[in-house]
Simulated scan of single mutants.
Amino acid sequence: MVTPARARALEPAPTRFWILHIVRAVILAAVGLFITFSRDHSPHLGLIAFGAFALVSGIVIGTLSVRLVADAPTRRLVIAQTVVSIAAGTIALALQATGLGTLLLTVSIWAGLTGLLELYAGYRLARRSALSRDFLIAGGLTALLAIVFVLLPPDFQQTDGGMDNVPLTLTSSVIAVGVFGAYAAVMAVFLAIGGLSIKWQKADDEASTEEPA
């Protein structure tokens, strides 16, 4: 994630930004595991899982970014993402009983807006920040989630043989909740690796500065 050649050019101090990566990874991992081990992939569960994730991550990351992100423009972009997340999470939880249409619309709008904000943050830091690549990849994955939810037909249904001659029905709801769970898992791994890379780079830099000339 962070190369030695670029680490010192970082505007939003990498030595502290790794904490945001790890916190996001933990929250995403939690929702990814919850969806993975849940047999219920209904719109109701999807809205609860997404709503809780968006609300918690928005509040926590927004609060931490005030202290951990030194670069003011980057901090404003991160806070803008958290505001969108808090709004989307609140709406999802309030409308958890309204069905698949609400899930598809809420997640697609959230993913579209936050993905574009993160892509812009990465573009703005290009060539002068080692975090640029992290922002661009995370933003790209989130924007891709938005595209999938926009293109997913709400009335899709396919029945296969399943196991033990029990029919297995694949619906739009199952796909949507499953895709969001997969997105959460992939993002959790990516951000965890990115955060640890920044942390280890900090340790390497500190060790090199302490070596006698």
Rank of each mutant, 00 (worst) to 15 (best):
I59T: 06
Y120P: 03
A49S: 11
I109S: 13
I109F: 13
T114G: 08
G178Q: 07
L20P: 00
R133F: 09
Y123W: 13
D205W: 12
F156E: 02
Q157N: 05
R75I: 00
V60Y: 01
R6A: 13
P43F: 02
A207T: 11
V83A: 10
V84I: 10
P212H: 07
G32E: 02
E211N: 10
G194P: 09
S42N: 03
N165V: 03
L152P: 08
V150H: 01
G89M: 09
R67F: 14
L45D: 06
Y123H: 14
A70I: 01
R24D: 03
R133L: 12
P14E: 02
W18I: 10
R6M: 10
D164F: 15
Y120G: 04
Y123K: 14
I35R: 08
I91G: 07
Y183P: 01
G162F: 11
P14T: 05
R124T: 00
A111T: 01
A176D: 01
E118Y: 15
L196S: 06
L20S: 04
E210L: 06
I27R: 00
A126M: 06
T142W: 02
G122M: 01
I198Q: 03
A203H: 12
P12A: 08
V66G: 03
G161Y: 04
V23Y: 04
W110F: 14
D164K: 15
I175T: 10
P14F: 15
D155L: 14
L191W: 13
P167H: 05
T169H: 12
S173V: 09
A92N: 11
T106S: 15
T209Y: 10
R67Y: 11
L196M: 09
D71Q: 09
S173H: 08
S197K: 03
L168T: 09
P12T: 03
L103E: 13
A192V: 06
A94K: 06
A207D: 11
A184G: 08
F149Y: 12
Y120L: 12
W200R: 14
I193F: 12
T209N: 15
T63P: 00
I198E: 00
L45E: 07
V148H: 07
R24T: 07
Q201N: 11
A49L: 04
L170G: 02
T169G: 04
A130P: 06
A213S: 14
M163K: 15
